[in-house]
Design a protein around this nucleic acid. Structure first.
Length: 479
DNA sequence: TGGGGTTAT
DNA sequence: ATAACCC
């Protein structure tokens, strides 16, 4: 295994994994019998302290978080951008930027004007078309799925991988003379010493090695760098992945989990506690993680409902039993566009056609068929401006069938449907002012779900073809 | 505040 | 259909 720190992708000034490893060894040296080279009782066919804990529910989770993902993809597309401060722009926002730009004061989601003011040399590229980001994002997920099929996506740039089984397999392969491989990869959170007599430490350590292999594969096969966090659940893995920031990894040992969660300055920094819940917690006087830990469960349940209350209070202790749910292929495809103003039906129709055209290409590539279409709008309003309205309806089966082939046949009926949904939401006889339009194709099904033996089965399977004139021909196989 | 996504109710 | 959450 090559050292990640030697990779060209490692950012200058951040190569401190070596130091951390040495610090750990120093800490280890002080503890009798705990250093990697310490003698361990030998036994044929395995290691005595590696007894399988039957029914053990302890997991090893890796959280992988790509470094300033959109900016990375842009620098791969155009290598001349490397080394320059780069921002990715959507409308008048810099949604993300590389580390050169961050050093010069540019922040994520900064206004373009503020960013240019802070950093006049900032190079901006438009990132409103997500196609290349989406493609690279799925390549990363697919690469991780080769390690373990249990991969959950979170946005385009984060993945959780449950590597528990991989860890167990590696430990079963471990022989007494292989003990030198029991070294941690990357940082250990809180500089905690690894205890090789502690099975939970060993498992997480192996997890850190797998995480390093994942990052190495990502860099060599796809050219992307990222951070990783290794811990016993998703919450902790995610929190610890961000501790050493670009292109580094950190493992959390159980004894330091309280230090990690207490390092959060506010409950709003806890993944799973969003804007609304934060406001409600503040109204109860809850600001810090400790406040949430010690707050009355009964009162919290009455205020937030039992489900949210119990979940977030467990989160405040670093407890998270939510499984890594394999994402698989996407549940929906959507395209949206925001703008200052759309106030006529024709204008709306043109935007909708644009969004739909891109969507049809995407859905065609995917191969599955959407059975539902949805139209989403955002109305202009000076206050309370984050709510959206939507209308959805089934896609007629005759339209669904034409989806993979000629897309012009599909455009017209789909636009007709979408404009009906539009008029259902917007009274076009009255003045209106929209600031966003979005089209979503969802309820994706593998193929037609017609049951064998039914008329639909023979009409819709590959045995049936529909010509452009609308005449349908089919063959019936005698089975 | 963009242009996406997910699940729960 | 909306509301909450995530990036």
């Amino acid at each position: 295994m090559e050292k990640l720190g030697a990779e060209p992708g490692e950012e200058a000034g951040c190569d401190d994994e070596e130091d951390a490893a040495k610090a750990m060894e120093r800490a280890e040296a002080g503890k009798a019998g705990c250093s990697p080279g310490a003698p361990v009782p030998e036994e044929p066919g395995g290691l005595p302290w590696l007894v399988p804990e039957g029914g053990s529910s302890s997991r090893v989770i890796v959280h992988v978080d790509l470094d300033c993902f959109y900016a990375q993809v842009e620098m791969i597309s155009n290598p001349e951008l490397k080394g320059k401060p780069l921002g990715v722009q959507q409308k008048y926002l810099v949604v993300t930027c590389n580390y050169e730009a961050r050093k010069l004061g540019v922040k994520k989601l900064m206004n373009v004007r503020d960013a240019k003011e802070k950093c006049p040399q900032l190079v901006l590229v438009n990132g409103e078309d997500l196609t290349r980001y989406r493609e690279m994002s799925y390549k990363v997920t697919e690469l991780l799925e080769e390690f373990s099929p249990v991969v959950e996506r979170l946005g385009f740039d984060e993945n959780f991988v449950d590597v528990t089984e991989m860890v167990e397999k590696r430990l079963q392969q471990l022989q007494s003379d292989d003990l030198s491989v029991l070294t941690v990869s990357g940082h250990v959170y809180n500089d905690q010493a690894v205890n090789l007599h502690d099975i939970s430490h060993i498992r997480l350590l192996v997890g850190s090695q797998i995480a390093a292999e994942m990052r190495e594969a990502m860099y060599h096969q796809l050219g992307v760098t990222g951070c990783a966090g290794v811990a016993s659940n998703k919450l902790l893995a995610k929190l610890v992945s961000g501790v050493f920031k670009p292109n580094q990894q950190t493992v959390l040992l159980p004894e330091s989990s309280q230090v990690l969660i207490q390092s959060l300055n506010h409950v709003k920094e806890m993944p799973g506690i969003g804007y609304k819940t934060t406001k409600r917690l503040e109204a109860l006087g809850i600001r810090s993680v400790r406040d949430l830990q010690t707050f009355s469960s009964k009162i919290l349940e009455k205020e937030l409902g039992i489900s949210v209350a119990q979940r977030i209070q467990k989160l405040s202790f670093g407890e998270d039993n939510s499984p890594v749910t394999p994402s698989g292929p996407p549940q929906s495809f959507s395209e949206e566009d925001s703008f200052k103003k759309c106030s006529s039906e024709v204008e709306a129709k043109n935007k909708i056609e644009e969004l739909l055209a891109s969507l049809l290409n995407r859905v065609c590539q995917d191969g599955r068929k959407p059975h539902t279409v949805r139209l989403i709008i955002r109305r202009f309003s000076s206050e309370h401006h984050w709510s959206r309205e939507s209308r959805q309806c089934p896609i007629p089966s005759h339209v669904i069938q034409k989806l993979g082939t000629g897309n012009h046949d599909v455009m017209t009926p789909m636009v007709d449907i979408l404009m009906k949904l539009f008029r259902n939401m917007v009274n076009v006889k009255m003045p209106f002012h929209l600031t966003l339009l979005s089209v979503c194709l969802c309820n994706l099904k593998a193929l037609n779900t017609a049951k064998k033996g039914t008329i639909d089965y023979y009409l819709t399977s590959s045995l049936s073809t529909t010509s452009r004139s609308g005449k349908r021909s089919f063959v019936i196989l005698l089975e």
